[in-house]
Nucleic acid binder design. Sequence first.
DNA 1: TATTGTTATACTCTATAACTATA
DNA 2: TATAGTTATAGAGTATAACAATA
Lengths: 165, 165
Amino acid sequence: MAVGNRGEKAQRQDGADDMRRIDTSSLEDILGFHLRMANVALYHDFSRAMEDLGLTQKQVAVLELIAQNEGASQIDIAATLGMDRATMMSLVNRLEDRNLVARRPSPVDRRRQQLILTGEGQEILAACRDLIAAHERKFTGRFSKEELKTFVGFLKRVYAGDSSG
Amino acid sequence: MAVGNRGEKAQRQDGADDMRRIDTSSLEDILGFHLRMANVALYHDFSRAMEDLGLTQKQVAVLELIAQNEGASQIDIAATLGMDRATMMSLVNRLEDRNLVARRPSPVDRRRQQLILTGEGQEILAACRDLIAAHERKFTGRFSKEELKTFVGFLKRVYAGDSSG
DNA sequence: TATTGTTATACTCTATAACTATA
DNA sequence: TATAGTTATAGAGTATAACAATA
């Protein structure tokens, strides 16, 4: 591990005595590093795509899960996405403040609140889907169908059985 | 895409009228979703592993890059990791407050500050490496050498050429 | 006793804007 | 004009602790 020129300074691109090109070989063999770098790249593009709608990755995921699982509770969604229930609370508060989701008491368990999309929430989600599809194509277009399937399988293997909340 | 039972409610695990199992099929075909889920899983385990040292993924990456590129500037490190320079500033401030890194003026460009690890920074980084190695093995152990190579190649393809800062 | 929601609190990361010093 | 650092400010996610209502 850590091949490269550890200890030696990276060559600068101009004649200055400061370096510009950063040697990353010490992180090269760390899977988590590459995973985070890929995530950062996707995050940047996602944020750019969602600039007008003002929604984050997490918010969209929550909207999508509520749409597909109408009446789910905060804690169910949170567990699915690996989020804390207090984190979920503030996220839903933000969506509720923007009138995208609503809470209604569960008829069978009065501790629980069911989450539903408002009409506005459904509209913004529909707009999201188009933007996300275009955003996704920028990256999925770099892979063949087979590669993509393998790739997703690898990613699932990383997060499979993660119930660490 | 989106196979599953969209529209139908997921079956509950007990007799209650609320759902517990969340249907995620609407996110199944989104590469970014799986990437984030993998990242979340890794993040949780990393945080647990670093509980005593109190360092985040980003902080460790910065320490490692400074160690390998002694004298690099904040902006060089930031660009490498896809971070904003103001974000980098506060991150370095935190590391400096903990006496893990130090700033010294560049001898050739008085706008720049060179970053170096303190002795304490070198010590904590050494401790980090062991913890991270153990943490990484939990995940890399799920892949063959060939698979891992392919996996990292895929991840690089996602973030290759990302200079969106 | 355990679960769900809730509130309070705090930290990290992120990002924009504006300013200073320097190139 | 552009770059590096800096400061101020704000928003979003994360997490812990504690409490009330309910199971």
